[in-house]
Every structure is written in C-alpha cells, then in structure tokens.
Design a protein around this nucleic acid. Structure first.
Length: 895
RNA sequence: GCCCGAGUGGUGAAAUCGGUAGACACAACGGACUUAAAAUCCGUCGCUUACCUGCAUAAGGGGCGUACCGGUUCGAUUCCGGUCUCGGGCACCA
C-alpha cells in the first residue's frame, strides 16, 4: 500500500488548481454572490500562525459556500507601506521597496502552499501607484469638501527620529524606538474630520451592524465616546497691572453636570489655552510651568496616573449666574483636545477637581444632595420647593446637610452622584429643589437670561484623524508648497504623485527632503519653483478601502466601479480583534465619505465580522546571572510529565539542563514561543496545519498550540488515506442500493449515524463552528471503519459514507480530499470536488421504527424506554407508567 | 474606576429551544503485534474505595459533579439574582 505522502498530494492538487485557474471569479448575475475577506497582511517577511488561522477560516468558508452554489470572492493583498520597511532598510541598507516586494513574493508562495482558494488576479498592493493614486485622489476630494484640512496641532514629536509618533508609540514619555524624551509640538499637518461623522458612526454601530460581535460594537461606541452636556461661557475682562482693560472675552467650557454649576470655585485651563498663554506672558514661573506641562508624552494611560499639578494664572472669570469672581488655574489634567480646553472646577462633585482643590486649598462647595438628605415636609413648612419632588406637591427641607452628608477630608464616589440641587442660603438659586436632570435642562436658559452664551451640546471623545507622517515609505500627500500661493493641491491630471522607490532611509529624517527629483516642482497655480509636501499618509488609509479595490482591481479610470457595486458590501470580514477600533472605524468612516461623494451606495462596508482568537503557546525561559530573561522556543524543549500527564519539568534539548515554564502566552517574538508555519507545512503538510488549527478551538476562541495535537491531525490524515487505499477497489465495484430497509440492522444503524453526523456538520459549518465540523470527520471515519461486512448493502454504504466524508472535510483539508475524490471515482459522478454539491441529509435514513426515549423521574434520568416511532402521547405515557423504574424512584410524589 | 466577555475531566473542548453532561481529540494507563523500539490496532479513562452488593482498588448499583451561593422549573452547563477568579477594552473625556 502506498503510504500517505502530503508533499506529492498537495503539490499535485495545487498545480491542478493553478493550471485550471479555478479560483478566478467574475461578476455573475446567475448566482448569489458572497464576498468573504481576511484583513490584509503586512508583508513583514513570512506568515505566522495567526495568518494561517485567519486565512484557513476564510478558506473553509469560501470553499463551503462555493459548494452551496454561491459565487464566492476570496481576494488577498498587501498592506505594503509602513515603518518596518524603513527600519529594515536602515538595518540592512536595502531600499524599503525591494525589501517589501521580496517579502510579498515569499509570503505569496507560502499562501499558495497552504492551498488557499484566492483569486490572485485581484491582488492589491498598497505601495503601488495604481493603488495609492486613489488615496491621493480621494484626499483631494476631501480637501474640496472640507473633510480634510491643514491644521497646526499638538503632536508627539520624537526629536531623534524627527517624526510624529502615534500615542501608542510613546512609552513612559519616550520614543518606542529611540528612547528619546518625546516633546509635544505644534506642527502643521493634515486632518480628516472624522468627528463630523461621529453621530452617524455611532448610530450605525447600534442599528446597522447586527452581524458584528457585541464587544466590537461596544468598543467602538466607547471609542467614539458620546457625552451630552452644556457648553457655556464664563465672561472675563483681563486687565494689566495698572488696572487698564486689555481684553474682554469669554472662556468656554463644556460640562455634563451643569446641575453642579453653583458649586464652581475655580476654573482650570489646558497648557495650550489662550488664557494660559496670555497669563504666562507676564509671569515667568507660570510660563515655565506651562512649558513643563507641554512636555512629556500625551500617552493617555500615563496621564491617568500622573499627579495633578496646577498654578494660579492670577486671572479671573465671572460666574455667569452669580457674577462671582472665579480664579483661573492652569491645570495639567485639562486636555486642550477635548471640549474647549477649559473646565469649570466643582470640587464637591468631581473627583479630579476635589483632588486639585485639596492640593491648592481651593473652596469646596456642595450643591447637589441625594434625596435621602432631605426631609419631606408639608407644603407650608419647607422652603426649598421642588418642581417635581412629590406628586402631592410636598416640600423638601434640608436636614443638616453639610455635617451629615459630606466629609470634606476625603473623596467619596457618592459625591459625584446625581440628586437634588440645594444651594447655600446666601447664594440661593433657581435650581434649588430641582433634580439634577431637570437642573441640567434649566441651566442653559438661566445663563442666557443673564445675557451669556450657553447651549446644549453633544461632545465626542473621538478626535480628528491626523494623517501626516514625517516618513518616507507611505503615500505622498498630493500638495505643493509655493511661496506665493501657499499649499496648493496637485491637479487631478497629475496624479499619482509617485513615491521614488530608490531611497534608503538612514534614520536621520525623511529622505524625501533630500530627493531633488521628487522635491522640486513648479507650482500648479503660478508655475514658479515650489516644493512638494514630503509628509506621507498614515498607512491606515491604505487599509481603509483596499477591500473595495479588490472588486475592480484593474480599473484605471476610477477608484471603484461595477465590481464594487456587485460585491460590496462585504458579506463576511475576518481578522484579529486588535483591529476592533482603529482600522474598522477608519474603514467605516472612509466608506461614508465615499458614499457622500457618490462613489458607492451603501453605508457600512462589512455586513458580518468575525474576530478570530489569538494563538497561544507555552513559554520557557531561564534567568541569566544579570537578571535578564532568555526565552527558548517550545520546539527546542522537552517537557516531562507525571503519571497523570501533567507537566512537571522542562529540559532544553541542546544541553539537557532544566528550563522554567513561563505559562501560556500569545505567540510572539519577544517570548520566542512562535511556531513557524513553514516548518509545520514542510513536516506535515498544509492539510494537517489547516486541520489542527480548525479542530483545536472555535474560530473566535484562543487557540492553544499543541505539538501533540498537530501529530494527532497528521495521524487522522494518514488514517483517512490508508482507509481509502484499502477500499479503493471495493468502492469502484460498489453496487447501487435503493432499498435500505432490507439492510442488516448494523448497516441501518451506521447509516443513520452517518446522516445524523452530516446533519450536525451542516448545521455547524453554517454557524462557523468549524471545530465540530472537523470532529464530524472523525466520527464519520470511525463509523465507516467499523463496517466489516462484504455484502452489497455494506459496500454501498461505505461508498456513500465516504463521499459524504470527503465533502464534509473538503473545506478544511482540500488537498487530500481532492486527491481521494478523483482516485475513488466520485469526480465522474458528482464533478470536481470544487463545485461538488454539499451532501444532503437523507431523511429516510434518519427514520426509525422504534425510538429510544429517556425516562426521567423528578428530573433525574432513570432508564430508557423503547417505543414505536408512531406512538402517540397516551401510548408513551402508558408504557412509562409500567416501567419498573417508575415504581422504584417516584417515591410518594405523583407522576 | 467604568464597560464587555469567560469559568465544564489531567488537557483542548462538545452539548441547535431548558431535557441522557463530558461527543471528538490530546495526554496517561493496560493489552495485542514485535527480538526490541517506533508505527499501528484493541481496551480503560469526572469524583465517590468508610454509600450498598462483592474476596475486591474487579463489576454492578446509588450518590455527587459544569467556579461559588441562592432562585425559577417536573427538570438548569443553559434562564434570573448575588459573590469570586481570570481575560479583554477604555481610562484625568470635564
């Protein structure tokens, strides 16, 4: 018997597929379309297990749906711009372009070796001009529409790399790569007004994405961060030392707790706020403090733990309701980028304000109290009347509020709760007696009555998307800077602005600044010598619409066309949870912009989303003498187990010395616990790799790597192969059977089991529970393997069962099943396995003359009852009543 | 701090609507084959050995068991309330 040889089987299947160009799809109207797509990879060098898992899920789905008669698109592309290419260039003195294209070539080969059903004619590479031309084109459209604009804003600046860094790239106030202290800098750049779309993005998150996981939707909601509140003005007059009026103006603040407005004892502004800047001009100590605040990263996790610091600006503003003079402080906890960069300080009802007031000895004035702090009295006795307090129009009376309710020495989260407004007698307020919610409604009107600005306002946490990067390897921003005309957009006819591919960055800034051929250009407006913008676009732009380009990959007259009309919106998107916010939000935003420009007709790009789980593996390490950790790859370590198979000790194979077990972690370079899929495919084949990754866990759950599990999958491949070899001749001569009623009981039982398993597999593959579909393959093979007879019924059942088995397993392990399908002669009967129909459940096989019911007495299983399948309720109850178990266990309770 | 999600054998996990918990596999153990090993095949595999029958650590029966406590139900891994633990997201957002 020929042994299972994954190499020759997989190579043969793949060459047949590629020779037939079988995965190319067109926009056919005679079939229902299905667009299943994975998040495109960054070409970092080679595939990792996360890729293998992602694309296998995608491939199983694509192959299955094709069997179900869908016109299925499964494309692939490359997120080819980005920092790693520049870093690699610096290290190896290779141009980022070459490094990137080499990686793409290698990874593409790996994908082909995995046997993925990708239509490669639609490949999209983000660093090629025919793709990024449309990034530039749409950017110019956004400029026209005012969605994109040039703005000078505070950013994280790495002084060594001379570039802006994203917040995530600032660690403990230092650049992640250089270790340089990050400065906050105000530099010009381009911003996309995603905040304009915040209301729609939020609403559609709730209404138009039922096919998304709940938690991704929640994460997006939180990220957009809607707050409803009141924006109002504190009027102020700034005078110089001699008392002469310098400036008359308004300081705007936003608050969600306008009901606490009577408790304002100070205001605080951000370092970049104009009032702070003004005050600093004549106050050196303040100027120095503001500088200090401006420095240091704005990484938000750090800010949260930072100590609250402040300094009095010496300036005051006026309370819009009381006219009181309120001191303005500079506070390091106030963000310029949220609201108006200034806050009202209510120490009694806000934890941050409380800490700030404690530290600097500012007043604390409680003005909102829980209902329990009031006594309810009759109509004539109370003096605080609530408009809504009680239906019988009773009154609230204060019951020793200050002493009982507030302990001003320490913060308590209950102080921030809403309640009933009550102001100190001396102040008095129209809010007194109102609930917080009612007071919030009243405040804007009250302020306006005083003649000052106030409005209800919704503010979002989401910030505009800064897309300028002081980097080389990205889409050039199509702008020309002219001394006389300013920033001039590149005319559409001159697109694309092609990025030179011959630059080798050396870490000393953007090489485009030194590239004369790129840099120097005539101004499109006045034709005088001018210079190109050297900033490039954030690479998240590339990934915001590539999935639409797959639909019209060769179109050179437009960004998208008929293909996108046909395929979009995408039916199923598959990728890692790490993109739950940024990429998915940007892509949704980009889609809405394209819709508003009339390019597409839908609101949301991804109908269904599947976030695959992480791949984890055991870690092993040793602590070196200097305290550093050395991590060892699991493939170099032997694990010893106790009698129960529990790991007790691990030993490094090379020196037979013990290593520590570090627990299970996400596969990562830093822990050296990654498994190279290439090694796996070489040793066991793509089918085994696919089988294991599908079997080990539900696609959305974390997958624990197990070498033994991989060996188990390989064993299954071999068992299936060996079994098929054994019965090849028998299958070819198997008779066709019409009447299964005459078959021996064991054959009928097995046939029933086969169809029951098929039914379960059909259900599970629909709901993307591929792990149990793989199990169904095991069950089917076990069931067939137990059939020993040589009668016609047995032979026919083996032939029938194996054809089901091959089709159930085909989406997961296409190579082996493809080979056996041809070898066993099924191809002649059902056609090529690619388009063979998914097997149908034979309902007659599931029918039984007698069925076994489980006898439960008081909820406990006590026995079994065999009744005729046609028996009605009365017959069954009668039979049950006679069962001996009933008497035994029913005790005194009625049946 | 706020918001999600998850806790089932030695391990990964199944259980479609509330109806036989642990399918399928991994590991382990016992056996067959082999000079031997590997591979393969067969078998056992939640706890309870002071719950009962038994010579018994066999076998059968009973009881318990899906993180913990409680509730609804004839019946709960599944529904409800509370607690704990783990994982993830957000976090000076006014």
């Amino acid at each position: 018997m020929i042994p299972y040889n994954h190499k020759s089987i997989e190579a043969a299947a793949q060459s047949q597929w590629s020779a037939g160009d079988v995965y190319r799809v067109t926009e056919r109207v005679d079939k229902k379309k299905f667009y299943a797509c994975s998040m495109l990879p960054y070409p970092s060098g080679k595939l990792h297990m996360g890729h293998v898992r992602n694309y296998t899920i995608n491939d199983v789905m694509a192959r299955y749906l094709r069997m179900k008669g869908y016109n299925v698109l499964m494309p692939m592309g490359w997120d080819a711009f980005g920092l790693p290419a520049e870093n690699a260039a610096m290290k190896n003195k290779v141009a980022p372009a070459k490094w990137t294209y080499d990686n793409i070539a290698y990874m593409k080969k790996q994908m082909q070796a995995m046997g993925l059903a990708i239509d490669w004619s639609r490949e999209v590479t983000a660093c090629k001009p025919d793709y990024y031309k449309w990034n530039q084109w749409l950017f110019l459209k956004m400029l026209e529409k005012g969605i994109a604009e040039r703005r000078t804003q505070v950013v994280n600046w790495d002084p060594v790399d001379m570039t802006v860094l994203a917040n995530e790239q600032v660690i403990d106030g230092k650049g992640w790569r250089t270790g340089a202290v990050i400065e906050k800098r105000e530099i010009p750049g381009y911003y996309l007004n995603i905040v304009r779309y915040a209301p729609e993005l939020l609403e559609h998150t709730l209404t138009k994405l039922p096919g998304w996981p709940e938690r991704v939707r929640t994460m997006q909601e939180n990220w957009i961060g809607k707050s409803e509140g009141v924006r109002f003005a504190f009027p102020h007059t700034i005078k110089d030392a001699s008392g002469t009026l310098v400036q008359e103006g308004k300081m705007y603040v936003f608050t969600t707790r306008a009901d606490t407005i009577m408790g304002v004892t100070f205001c605080a502004v951000a370092a970049e706020h104009p009032i702070a800047t003004h005050a600093a001009a004549s106050n050196k100590a303040l100027a120095a403090f503001i500088e200090e605040c401006k420095k240091g990263g704005v990484a938000e996790a750090d800010m949260a733990t930072m100590e609250k610091k402040g300094m009095n600006t010496g300036l005051t503003v006026n309370h819009p309701l009381t006219g009181e003079s309120v001191p303005v402080w500079e506070g390091n906890y106030v963000l310029m980028s949220y609201g108006d960069g200034a806050v009202m300080g209510v120490p009694a009802h806000d934890e941050r304000d409380f800490a700030f007031a404690k530290k600097y000895g500012l007043g604390i004035r409680p003005v909102v109290f829980p209902e329990a702090a009031f006594k309810v009295c009759g109509p004539s006795t109370g003096w605080v009347q609530s408009a809504e307090c009680k239906p019988d129009n009773t009154f609230f009376e204060v019951a020793g509020l200050r002493e009982d309710w507030f302990d001003l020495s320490e913060w308590n989260s209950k102080y921030a709760e809403k309640g009933i407004c009550y102001t100190h007698e001396k102040l008095g307020s129209k809010l007194d007696g109102s609930s917080s919610d009612r007071a919030i409604e009243m405040v804007p009107e009250l302020i306006r009555t005083q003649g000052y600005f106030a409005e209800k306002k919704t503010t979002y946490r989401l910030r505009d998307w800064g897309i300028s990067r002081q980097r080389y390897w990205g889409t050039p921003i199509p702008i020309i800077h002219c001394e006389t005309c300013g920033a001039v957009p590149v005319p559409e006819k001159d697109l694309p602005v092609v990025l030179p591919e011959d630059c080798i960055p050396d870490g000393s800034g953007n090489p485009l600044k030194l590239h004369a051929g790129f840099l120097n250009v005539a101004c499109p407006k006045c034709a005088k010598p001018a210079q190109r913008e050297t900033d490039t676009m954030d690479t998240f732009i590339d990934s915001s619409w590539y999935f639409m380009r797959y639909c019209d990959p060769q179109l050179n007259t437009a960004m998208v066309g008929k293909g996108a009309d046909y395929w979009m919106p995408m039916d199923q998107y598959i990728g890692g949870i790490e993109h739950a916010i940024l990429h998915l939000l940007y892509a949704r935003f980009w889609t809405k912009v394209m819709r508003d420009l009339g390019l597409v007709k839908f609101d949301e790009p991804f109908t269904k989303l599947l976030t695959q789980g992480m791949v984890l593996a055991e870690t092993f390490y040793r602590k070196n003498a200097d305290g550093s950790m050395e991590w060892f790859n699991p493939s170099d370590v032997d694990v010893e187990t106790d009698a129960h198979g529990k790991p007790v000790r691990a030993v490094l194979r090379s020196d037979s010395q013990p290593v520590m077990m570090g627990g299970v972690e996400k596969m990562a370079k830093s822990k050296n616990n990654g498994v190279d899929p290439q090694d796996l495919i070489d040793a066991y084949g793509a089918d085994t790799a696919r089988h294991f990754t599908m079997r080990a866990a539900h696609p959305e759950d974390t997958l624990f790597w197990s070498d033994a599990g991989v060996a188990g999958s390989y064993r299954f491949m071999r068992r299936l192969w060996d079994y098929a070899q054994k019965i090849t001749e028998q299958i070819k001569t198997a008779p066709s059977v019409q009447n299964w009623k005459d078959a021996p009981d064991t054959v009928q039982t097995t046939r029933r089991e086969i169809y029951a398993t098929l039914q379960k597999a059909s259900f599970d593959i629909e709901r993307i529970q591929y792990n149990t579909v793989v199990s169904a393959g095991d069950i089917l093979l076990n069931a067939l393997g137990e059939l020993r007879g040589t009668d016609d019924h047995t032979k026919a059942l083996i032939a029938e069962g194996l054809s089901i088995l091959l089709r159930v397993l085909y989406p997961v392990t296409p190579h082996l099943t493809h080979q056996l399908w041809q070898q066993l002669g099924y191809a002649a009967q059902h056609g090529d396995l690619l388009d063979a129909p998914w097997p149908e459940v034979d309902a007659s096989a599931m029918k039984q003359d007698h069925i076994t019911l489980v006898l439960q007495i008081n909820g406990k299983t006590r026995g079994e009852l065999v009744v005729s399948a046609t028996a009605d309720k009365a017959v069954i109850e009668a039979a049950a009543a006679q069962a001996p178990e009933v008497e035994l266990y029913s005790e005194w309770r009625p049946p």
